[in-house]
Design a protein around this nucleic acid. Sequence first.
RNA 1: GGUGAGAUGGCUGAGUGGUCGAAAGCACCGGUCUUGAAAACCGGCAUGGGUUUGUAGCCCAUCUAGAGUUCAAAUCUCUAUCUCACCGCCA
Length: 425
Amino acid sequence: MLDSKLLRSDLDEVAAQLAKRGFTLDTATINALEDERKELQVRTQELQSQRNTRSKSIGQAKARGEDIQPLLAEVGQLGAKLDLAKEELATLLAKIDAIVSAIPNLPHESVPHGLSEDDNVEVRRWGTPKEFDFDVKDHVDLATALGKGLDFESGAKLSGTRFVVMRGQIARLNRAVGQFMLDLHTEQHGYQEMNVPLLVNHDSLFGTGQLPKFGEDLFHTDLGNKKFSLIPTAEVPLTNLVRDEIIEEAELPIKMTALSCCFRSEAGSSGRDIRGLIRQHQFDKVELVQIVKPEDSFAALEGLTKCAEKVLELLELPYRTVNLCTGDIGFSATKTFDIEVWLPAQGTYREISSCSNMGDFQARRMQARYRTGENKTELLHTLNGSGLAVGRTLVAILENYQQADGSIAVPEVLKPYMGGITQIG
RNA sequence: GGUGAGAUGGCUGAGUGGUCGAAAGCACCGGUCUUGAAAACCGGCAUGGGUUUGUAGCCCAUCUAGAGUUCAAAUCUCUAUCUCACCGCCA
């Protein structure tokens, strides 16, 4: 959510910033509604003020034992006028709120301009893709051959397309990857391990920006009067921990990590990445979240991104890091780095982590604040990133560590998590 | 699932229709005192919004949330949510 003061004072500048990310702001409509709002709100508050003072005088007159009938008659018509004004105002505010809630965050000045992913800027590259002296297989063929380690047919039978059953050492490898990441971030990077609900309420989804605009990307439950949604990422519960809170400055920064299942409807991507583990309805992910003071957030983004990259470096998987352009960053983000891992079967780098600084955009929606040294409350900044997506890491390991006979070498750092075995198959 | 009790400012907690945005205590901030600190004393201290050149003033809203009664609601009514206790069921 953008600052409503900014929208009032500098609407044209906001529109110009948003245009950079391909979002057209209807300034004429907003201005018209805003004028109406100003007039109506002032009038409503004026009526309320009148009612308050008269009610007060009735109380005082009664206390003095005077006849209050004339006063009652006078205040009578006020009520009807006030009710009408309040109703009109509520309708108008709801209309404005619907528009403002759907406006994305402003891109930071360090974000490259561009309208599509072609304009993203690579900022660094690590590792060298391995040369294979045999025909590489993709992760589906590799894992299927290993005792149906990845079983998409069973996934389809149990649930449907975009679901998978993992079996044996592949299932264990998936668990090992998650454990390894979690241990790294808690033991080396100073994040606190968290375990959070996978079903959350609508307030939480609004807070991080999934609602109202992106409801169709989520799975929803509806049990009587309880409406929950499955989390698309642990960013939602972790970040919402500070919703409606005032944090003491000394407690900042807050750094949290969680390994969780994530659920996505993939409504807009039918036909994309149909094969394999890349785009599933359900997958594991280790999430990194930081809650920081405003002046620290861009440095924190660099640090958080580094933590995610470290996972790939320890796994010895080549990657590149990309500064997303204005047209490619997400709704709530002011700046985003994507980390892409090398996949030999596709001969390309594929996204495995997305690290974003949300600025105060989520904090304003959540009313997440901190108390400054001067005893004032100020909005926090929130950041999050995958550290990493477990399923996609599994894909990268299978494909990068495959050997000529179809077996998979176990990455050095994962051996303790795999009971000491050195290869699968 | 059943029964009962609750939900008030950063925390504890008073307040059952009329200057209540809310007593008091704690915490916090400033000051006096002190070589310094503590104690004591004095003062300050909620949030969101509107208006405005204004972090001035004025105004509005907020005592879990929503709806209602009333000229007037923290206070009365209804609904929801959450918390606690006991019972039942259960991984």
